[in-house]
């Protein structure tokens, strides 16, 4: 057995993965320098390693940051000096580079510290979300009740959206389980003011109808209503908190993939029939 080689680039990469720091690893998978690597972070630091030419490094680093922001991994083709336009690539050997992205985990904010919250937080953790539970009631919003959550915040919706709403993007989700209008309405308004990809709001058909009236009163328009999944979840006939959690997470997946599976929003009649 020969000795194991030193792995300085891998060691740095492993450290970034462990601390959940966004990082992209670019590897030449076809070309003269197969195996050459460039490790790219979003903090503005110089990339580590090299793919063999400074211009290629520069172009790949730029593309890797874009891939990282979209949480996408895949293969891209370049000329030996980073050329990307088809004219520049004629009669040039092609270098194929695999960019492996490690984006920060998507976030799920859950409003309302209820039994459904604990189940949803568990299922969301399985799917890789960073979960924040929010409730204005100090007695209910405790880490002890939601040990699976990454953060538990005693707060009304408006302050947390003001503070952190700008962090939310298309991969993230806001689930409003309070079914209490004095909490739901500001939570929906807060969520609609962000770029969050999924907004689901819990409640019976009756609660839903009342909520829609109140939201209309505060000025939510059709574009806003189109973004709301209310009542939250797929029409699975879910009953328990755990089944409901699965129906919510399944709806989030279906919205992302664009599959035409039936949501409760688009059905009518009692939810538990």
């Amino acid at each position: 057995m020969t000795t194991a080689p030193d792995t300085p680039l891998f060691d740095r990469y492993a450290e970034l993965l462990r601390t959940e720091t966004p990082v992209a690893l670019a590897t030449i998978i076809e070309g003269d320098q197969t195996g050459a690597k460039l490790l790219v972070t979003t903090d503005g630091a110089e990339p580590l390693g090299t793919l063999g030419h400074p211009d290629l490094d520069r172009v790949v680093a730029r593309d890797a940051i874009a891939e990282l922001e979209a949480a996408r991994s895949g293969v891209r083709s370049y000329g030996p000096e980073g050329q990307t336009t088809p004219e520049d690539l004629i009669d040039q050997p092609t270098i194929r580079v695999f960019v492996e992205s490690h984006a920060p985990p998507p976030q799920m904010w859950i409003f309302g510290a209820v039994d459904f919250t604990a189940a949803l937080a568990r299922v969301a953790k399985i799917l890789g979300y960073r979960v924040t539970v929010c409730d204005a009631r100090e007695v209910f919003a405790t880490k002890r009740r939601f040990p699976m959550a990454d953060a538990v915040r005693v707060t009304w919706p408006t302050p947390i959206f003001d503070e952190l709403g700008a962090e939310l993007g298309p991969r993230d989700a806001v689930c409003i389980l309070t079914h209490d209008p004095k909490f739901d309405v500001p939570a929906v308004q807060g969520a609609l003011a962000t770029r969050v990809g999924y907004i689901g709001v819990m409640g019976s058909r009756k609660t839903h109808d009342k909520r829609m009236e109140r939201l209309t009163e505060v000025g939510v328009d059709d574009d806003g209503f189109n973004r709301l999944m209310s009542p939250i979840g797929l029409d699975l006939g879910a009953r328990t908190p755990e089944e409901t959690a699965v129906s919510i997470c399944a709806e989030i997946i279906a919205r992302r993939t664009g599959k035409g599976v039936p949501s409760l929003r688009d059905a009518s009649g009692p939810i538990h029939s």
Partner: peptide, 14 residues
């Protein structure tokens, strides 16, 4: 690596 083993890594690229 602590045990001094050499390792190969296979990654899905496409």
């Amino acid at each position: 690596r602590r045990d001094g083993e050499r390792i190969a890594v296979a990654r899905v690229v496409d």
